[in-house]
């Protein structure tokens, strides 16, 4: 049984559709990652999953029951940590105890608050009685996280939890999220630009663009801007001046996104190794890592600030001597590039 099931969901702000999801589900006990550029609809989707906003159209089912944002019991099962963590104008203790007070859970309140603070690396003795304005940005974000963890939710929705905080706070947030899942079985849905973290922790990663879910799995997205070339093609100028080519482009590709599957990319040390029918871009092998949930070797190649994902054959990596830092060529077929976005060629 799915924990969440979304049917024909649409969300509109000011008459503009900002989210459109025909069908999507989240399984219980999983960690789902959402990534995509700013404005792609990640926060909007999380607000719907956290029952803090109602969709303009469609239905959200939680354990097969249709939901309503003011159905208190449902909202007590899922809690959202918004991107802009807002602390109520009161002490840290009262901020964290607020959700417990709403639930009427007065027993062991002080211990529970202290425990939640310790989960995010804040010492209860020195932080509990501080007013909301006496915290740094990172401490405020961690206190806001503690206010969610203290509730022992079934679902924890994190919107850019590590954005704009120092490295220590970011590490604490990641650890607290992982503990919530692995120790308490909390289902996590995380929106983040930290792709490496998502790939390390998530069961599934979904890409979002222009209010749509583009599908599950690791693939490289090139968000443009795209320029039309000829009848059918388009090119994207990477930051280092190289061009990435794609065929079957939409009529107006400027605002569209293109993606290429890892299986459609091959890795070469020398340009002469590239098959003649393929196109290539030059990059640097920045990371070789074992993908925990699939057991595959994943290579990340940076070309003009775009990070391409490839699953190379471990034997060839070993044989040819690929090492992080090696200059490499990424070969691909422009016809294999897939298009996503507002307009597609019929």
């Amino acid at each position: 049984m799915s924990l969440y099931r979304l049917e024909n969901i649409e969300q509109r702000y000011g008459g503009k559709t900002v989210l459109s999801i025909p069908d999507w589900s989240v399984a219980e006990g999983t960690i789902t990652g959402l990534c995509g550029p700013n404005g792609s609809g990640k926060s909007t989707l999380l607000r719907l999953l956290g029952f803090t906003d109602s969709p303009a159209r469609g239905r959200i089912f939680f354990r097969d029951r249709a939901t309503d944002i003011y159905a208190g019991n449902l909202r007590k099962k899922a809690t959202l940590l918004p991107q802009e963590s807002y602390l109520l104008k009161r002490t840290v203790y009262r901020n964290i105890a607020y959700g417990l007070r709403i639930r009427g859970e007065k027993k062991n309140q002080r211990q529970r608050v202290a425990q939640a603070l310790s989960l995010v690396g804040l010492d209860a003795e020195s932080f509990a009685e501080r007013p909301w304005y006496a915290l740094s940005g990172g401490e405020a974000r961690r206190a806001a996280m503690a206010a969610r963890l203290v509730l022992n939710p079934e679902v924890l929705l994190l919107d850019e939890p590590t954005a704009g905080v120092d490295a220590q706070s970011a590490q604490m947030m990641k650890q607290a999220a992982a503990d919530a899942h692995f120790k308490n079985g909390v289902t996590l849905v995380i929106a983040s630009h930290d792709l490496q973290w998502l790939e390390d922790i998530c069961t599934d990663i979904f890409y979002m663009f222009d209010g749509k879910l583009l599908g599950k799995g690791t693939r490289t997205f090139i968000f443009g801007p795209w320029e039309k070339t000829g009848d059918n093609g388009a090119l994207c100028r990477l930051a280092d001046g190289q061009v990435f080519l794609a065929e079957n482009a939409p009529k107006d590709p400027a605002g569209a996104a293109a993606a290429i599957e890892p299986e459609e990319l091959s890795l070469h040390l020398e340009k002469q190794d590239i098959p003649p029918e393929k196109t290539a871009v030059k990059g640097i092998l920045v990371r070789l890592a074992l993908e925990k949930h699939s057991g595959r070797l994943r290579a990340s190649i940076s070309a003009g600030h775009t990070e391409f994902i490839v699953y190379p054959d471990p034997k060839s990596i070993h044989r040819k001597g690929f090492l992080p830092g090696s200059p490499v060529w990424l070969a691909y077929t422009p016809q294999k590039v897939k298009w996503f976005g507002k307009e597609r060629r019929p």
Partner: peptide, 18 residues
Amino acid sequence: LEAGLRTTLLSLGAGKYR
């Protein structure tokens, strides 16, 4: 008031009255 307040209160479990 900041726009995040409503989301914060709802996400912590507040109903209409709260």
